[in-house]
Write a protein that binds this DNA or RNA. Structure first.
Lengths: 347, 347
DNA sequence: ATAGCTAAGTAAACCGGTTAACCGACCACT
DNA sequence: AGTGGTCGGTTAACCGGTTTACTTAGCTAT
């Protein structure tokens, strides 16, 4: 465990200068360093077990070969809520490594609210940033680009910025089309209470989709649905406790698979069956969707595709062709995975 | 987007030397720099929006404040298989960030087989490494410590090394005790075919646990069970196709929750019900276990606890107190989560 | 008066690479 | 003989911090 050898040690051992060693090992000296010297250097490097020091390298090249990945890591929220985000993270890691870069994790909120922590981000240790679910007007989305840091927003569409997202509208449309084809005409939407009904893409798409199908949009059927307990009053149970059965929805689109799980519970609490009485469709296609009972029909987001798009985008931005000025956007296709939570509605 | 200010710029603006600025900003100059100078420096730094360059800092201090996390990221394996690993990763990230360190991701196999990529690891960009499921005799486990890199093995108990793992034996014992209490006496074990029955802790604990309970160990009831399709011949189905019903197991311990899902399918293929005919217990408690049908009784590994132990261990190793020589080991407690996949066996 | 100490700060080396600029030798050509 | 070009390197600056060793002024103690 003696001190690690440096470029200079190798240079001395090979009887050449640091420059020659650097050029040889980096491959930049091709057609400048004759092979006889090359061999000498290589032999010396091998004998000393030389390994370039990554930090020094990064400093000299002004490039770290690292992609920052900013995400929310909250220990108080059940990990189950984050199954999709975790899959996406894994996919991002995979794609980043494919390019020979290493992903480095940064925490998003609530720290990012403070201006003091920004130095921890744009400090040269990462060449670009991938932001998962960034606040559109947040510190990071505004400050990092200002400092010349390429930034890619993931799962959030931000005007004027680079972003990658799934085509939520297509997913909702496919869900509605599937339900319509089965014969459903009374369709509700359930989302957690922190989702803004007025603005979010999925809810907007839901309304527009209904209209396009010639179905009425009932605002009282767009409801909040949180984890068990607090959902009774404002929640979904009310939809099905209507006196006249003809007034109940026959299908529910859920915000995501986790919400769909809550919907399952609440529907059953009303004594109804899935899918005989009510059909349910989720979003994301997390692993649990497949093993739910009944297996959940859901819109699958292709995390590997999204990850590849995001990392590609970062690499393009880093390659520094001036074209990197215009914002790049990618809307990834989604797939409706039809399982057993959807069926023809009861007569 | 003009060039980022450096220490020297701040020094010039404040009319002092680089050293003074560095000392002031790092806090090391306390009781050396009078507050009047301090204020001048701070004001200059604020005006210029100075942010120390992390890479330069790391080079100078010979410490990067980064923890390397080495894990397997294989795009060809369904992400569903990795739910537990993903949760553990998230927990590791969280705990690492808590210490003001950033996690950096490295790929494990199959790359790690080659000696050429080691430079990418021990190159000064990470101060220590957390290895998820490392090969006990692999390149990383042997080489990194040799180079003076602290290494923590996670989910794998390696002699002479630092490691953190769950108490698998306790988990198996709790499972067996639960089944025994319900009245089960014929218990099988199912694991994927890449698990070595002879050596792995869980299987060993299974055998020993049966003996301790006075139950017979039937090697033909310790079976392989892979994803659908290839499991028919060597698999679990055979256990239940025995002519005499009295010869069938009444309960199955599964390698993990994913395997338990396969077991569910195969048991049902034989026309048996869970838990009425056969009880099933998993391991890990991934999100899907809760929503399975029936909800799976399983041994929960406390990922946050494991992560904290691992990161603590890394920090201790980095703090450099000589005591870091002896290997540290932590066996984390687990909890049997009793749901609805276990019941009294049929008479 | 002078050695000795402290407070306040600085110069310069250092970390370990990358890279721009330069240099000497040798050869070819005019 | 002089000019220019290529080959095969080298020197030294640089990246942006940290840290060691040293300085200088002012004060005290003897």
């Amino acid at each position: 465990m003696h001190k690690r050898p440096t470029l200079e040690d190798v240079a001395f051992a090979a009887g050449v200068s640091k420059t020659t060693v650097s050029l040889t090992l980096s491959g930049k000296g091709i057609n400048k360093i004759p092979s006889v010297t090359r061999e000498r250097v290589l032999a010396a490097a091998a004998k000393l077990q030389f390994r370039p020091h990554g930090v020094a390298r990064a400093l000299g090249r002004r490039r770290a070969d690292v992609l920052g990945v900013v995400c929310t890591l909250n220990p108080f929220v059940e990990l189950a809520h984050h199954a999709f985000e975790q899959s996406l993270l894994s996919a991002l890691f995979y794609q980043t490594l494919e390019y020979g870069y290493n992903p480095m994790i940064y925490a998003a909120s609530p720290i990012s609210a403070s201006k003091d922590v920004l130095p921890r981000y744009a400090d040269g240790r990462s060449d670009a940033f991938l932001l998962l679910y960034p606040e559109p007007a947040g510190m990071l989305m505004t400050c990092l680009p200002e400092m010349g840091m390429p930034v890619i927003a993931i799962c959030r569409q931000i005007d004027g910025a680079n972003w990658v997202d799934s085509d939520h509208t297509a997913g909702i449309d496919a869900s509605l089309a599937h339900l319509a084809e089965l014969g459903h005409r009374r369709i509700a939407y359930a989302a957690p209470s922190d989702v803004d009904f007025a603005s979010h893409g999925r809810v907007v798409a839901f309304r527009e989709g209904l209209l396009r199908l010639g179905l009425p949009v009932r605002e009282d059927w767009i409801v909040h649905c949180d984890s068990e307990g607090q959902s009774d009053e404002s929640g979904i149970g009310r939809l099905f406790s209507s006196a006249e059965n003809a007034e109940c929805p026959t299908a529910v689109l859920a915000w995501n698979d986790f919400t769909a799980g809550e919907v399952y519970k609440l529907i059953r609490k009303e004594g109804l069956r899935i899918p005989e009485d009510v059909s349910v469709i989720g979003f994301d296609d997390v692993p649990a969707a497949r093993v739910a009972s009944p297996p959940l029909t859901t819109v699958r987001q292709d995390v590997m595709l999204m990850a590849k798009a995001a990392v590609d985008m970062a690499m393009t931005a880093l390659s520094g062709t001036a074209s990197s000025e215009g914002a790049n956007c990618v809307l990834c296709p989604v797939n409706l995975i039809i399982r057993e939570s959807t069926a023809v509605p009861a007569a």
